[in-house]
């Protein structure tokens, strides 16, 4: 079976600096694949190329076997690639429900409809409310997205992604900036998604990564130096030397 996401020889340079150096990996259907690496390893550049906000110099990205390397971010999203952002990205002036209903709207029929009131389209609202509830935000439907707490905004991003019914979900440091209680709730949420979606997770919290991931890829200076199960990665001498060795208890 073709993998959900397939990355082949992805290369990107900023002037002389190779930020992505021939990166290749596969994400199987239903797999949670984490990508870790020290600061400056090129994780953010990688996720920008996967989501389509940055074009690679060389290499290919396949979503469910289809080449999406040259597609815009919006076109990738319509084909089933959802992402959350490292820095929270929501529609602050709209309600939580409207944020999610727009994601439903994007995949259900034309949006060049001018007269019928969208707030009365129960098909959109019902699916949006369902996604909000799945992300632990039941009851927050009518709150303005800008007034949600940081952790709730993180949950809202996941609700938006769920409402897209994606094939692959890119989570870019979903725990960044969250407090202890908030991150525990988010971890539960991500753990609950495991197996239902194919997920690429970029995250600094090693404890979380090793607890959640089916497989882990280690990125150092733009190269993937290892890919394997959490146990294999923990035991990998090269990884320990390059990255984990200096982190106590990792």
């Amino acid at each position: 079976m073709t993998p959900a996401l397939s990355v082949r020889g992805l290369t990107k340079s900023f002037d002389a600096l190779k930020v992505s150096d021939g990166i290749s990996f596969d994400v199987a259907w239903g797999e949670l694949h984490a990508i870790i690496g020290p600061n400056g390893a090129g994780k953010t550049t990688l996720i920008h190329q996967l989501s389509g906000s940055l074009a690679p110099d060389a290499g290919r990205i396949l979503l469910g076997g289809h080449d999406i390397t040259r597609l815009s971010m919006a076109a990738r999203a319509r084909r089933g690639l959802a992402r959350s952002f490292q820095i929270t990205s929501i529609l602050a002036g709209l309600t939580a429900l409207e944020n999610v209903a727009l994601a439903v709207q994007a995949r259900s029929g034309s949006s060049f409809r001018f007269l019928r009131q969208v707030a009365r389209e129960s098909a959109l609202n019902d699916q949006a409310a369902e996604a909000l509830a799945a992300a632990g935000l039941a009851g927050a439907e009518d709150r303005s997205a800008g007034t949600l707490s940081h952790g709730e905004k993180r949950q809202l991003e996941i609700a938006i992604a769920l409402a897209m019914q994606p094939k692959v979900l890119l989570l870019d440091e979903p725990l960044a900036g969250t407090g202890h209680r908030e991150s525990a709730a988010l971890l539960d949420l991500i753990a609950g998604l495991k197996g239902r979606l194919s997920i690429v997770l970029i995250e600094h919290d090693m404890e979380a990564v090793f607890a959640l991931a089916d497989r882990i890829s280690v990125l150092v200076y733009g190269r993937l130096i290892a890919t394997g199960t959490p146990d294999a990665i923990r035991a990998d001498a090269q990884v320990r030397a390059a990255y984990l060795g200096d982190e106590e208890g990792a």
Partner: peptide, 16 residues
């Protein structure tokens, strides 16, 4: 209205 609020977010959910 969504594109007014956050263009990147709109692209990320599939709107050009």
């Amino acid at each position: 209205t969504g594109t007014r609020e956050n263009e990147t977010r709109m692209q990320a959910i599939g709107f050009s």
